[in-house]
Simulated assay, not measured.
Amino acid sequence: MTDLHLVVGGLLTRDPVLAPLLLNHAAALQWAQAPAPTSIAPSWAADERPGAPDGGELLTVEAHVSRDTPHPHRCLDTVLDTVHAVLTRGPIRVERLADADVPDIGGGTVSRAATWALTLAAPDVLDRPATGYRSSGAASSNR
């Protein structure tokens, strides 16, 4: 797993809207079932576009909602927009490339996918301490 995957996974799993959708997808995978009625399925590919930055990857997220969901198309748009918003809050360069224009209907769900080109803004982001924290040798006194 690359640093980019770790950063993106952390961002998505900390979001209160997206975390349960990822969990639903993981549960469906574990039990070898069709996509859960409300889930997101992320997938990765190398970014081989001409001029793509080194270390860049493409993240495609397929969002699924139940066909019984009121306004399923609006719900899918909201989920994919939430993914975009979460990605742009991290230490990542984000470019939203494409959304499937036509939702896919099947198996009791309606789904739509979107793809982002991603690179770490700072390649060594996982090797640096979080801002606002002191190193272990910088203990403070309460006196």
Rank of each mutant, 00 (worst) to 15 (best):
Q33W: 12
T78D: 01
D101V: 14
G10D: 08
T88R: 05
D47H: 11
S111R: 04
A113W: 02
S141R: 15
P103H: 00
A63R: 02
D54F: 10
N24D: 13
V110N: 03
S140P: 07
L21P: 04
L126F: 07
G106A: 11
E62W: 06
D81E: 00
L18W: 00
L80K: 04
G10I: 12
A130W: 13
R112E: 00
R49C: 00
L126I: 14
D104L: 14
D127C: 11
A45P: 03
P103G: 01
M1L: 07
P16D: 13
P53L: 10
T60R: 10
V79P: 11
H73K: 03
L76P: 04
L18C: 12
R96T: 03
R14F: 06
L87H: 00
T88N: 05
I40Q: 09
A34D: 13
V79C: 03
V7C: 02
N24E: 06
S135T: 13
V79I: 10
H71C: 01
D68K: 09
V65E: 00
W31L: 09
E95I: 13
H84V: 09
V86Y: 05
H64T: 13
V125L: 12
R74S: 06
D127A: 14
D3P: 05
A28N: 06
R134E: 13
P72T: 05
S111V: 14
V7Q: 04
S141F: 15
L22Q: 07
E57P: 02
A117E: 09
G51Q: 15
L22S: 08
A27F: 14
A122R: 15
V8S: 08
V7L: 09
P35C: 07
T13R: 04
D127W: 15
T115E: 01
S43L: 13
A28H: 12
L97P: 02
V83D: 02
A139Q: 14
D99A: 06
R49N: 02
A122S: 10
D47M: 12
D104N: 12
A27P: 00
G137F: 12
T115K: 06
C75M: 08
T38I: 03
D77E: 00
L4C: 07
Q33L: 14
Q30T: 13
L58E: 03
R96P: 04
A34K: 07
G106R: 08
W44H: 05
V94D: 08
A139I: 13
L120C: 08
S141G: 09
L23S: 12
T38A: 12
A32W: 14
P72Q: 04
L4S: 03
L6V: 07
L4T: 02
Q30E: 15
G107S: 09
R89Y: 01
A32M: 12
R96A: 01
L29G: 07
I92W: 10
P103Y: 03
T38G: 06
L23R: 14
G9D: 12
